[in-house]
Amino acid sequence: MLLLAFDTATPAVTAAVCEPDGAAVRIRAAASAVDARRHGELLAPGIRDVLARADASPADLTHIAVGIGPGPYTGLRVGLATAHALAEALGIACHGVATLDAIAHASGRDTPFIAASDARRKEVFWARYADSATRVGDIAVDRPADVPADGLPVIGHGARLYADVFGQDADAAEPLYPSAAALGEVAVLRLLAGAELPEPRPLYLRRPDAQVPGAPKRVSAVRGPAARA
């Protein structure tokens, strides 16, 4: 198994190549950049570079794991469109990993906590974890003040942005972003354990912003039936 992992659901653009090493995971190469506005420009060259540093060609890959968010949609879709197309062209399996699960995994915590990322519009995407490998319940989107943190530590960029609301030190929020190394580890470990991974489809959690326009200025005049096409 040689797995390419990447995630574009947060300001980080991150890619890694990894493989099983006994019961553990070996990261052959990994790279991340933080630039919320350039996911589309950074991801493909980033993938090419980690492949080169892993001494692998695309044809050597057997699996893809991609972050499915939630996250701001435009960036999120860069990762998913890339994953679908790579998997298609290479004829290999493609799996999803919730981006918060990758952040949680990287925290290495063995006691309960909350992971939160920036959902913009003064909200966070968040989920509760029993430990770094165990999410409890679904991922939700809420205003920080409405997250039932119950005094649990909160990690992730959402925790850093709203440290005052969560009543904790901004420095306590690490890791802020997912790393593809962590995401790849989550994927490889679950695949080795025979566990299900999500479909590689985006977790949007919100409906598109769109207003159905009001009726046009009513025109009560008679209209010909021909016009009612």
Partner: peptide, 12 residues
């Protein structure tokens, strides 16, 4: 971005 991301992945 969707089309360009897919096209880059095919090219790569």
């Amino acid at each position: 971005l969707v089309g360009v991301s897919a096209a880059k992945a095919y090219a790569l």
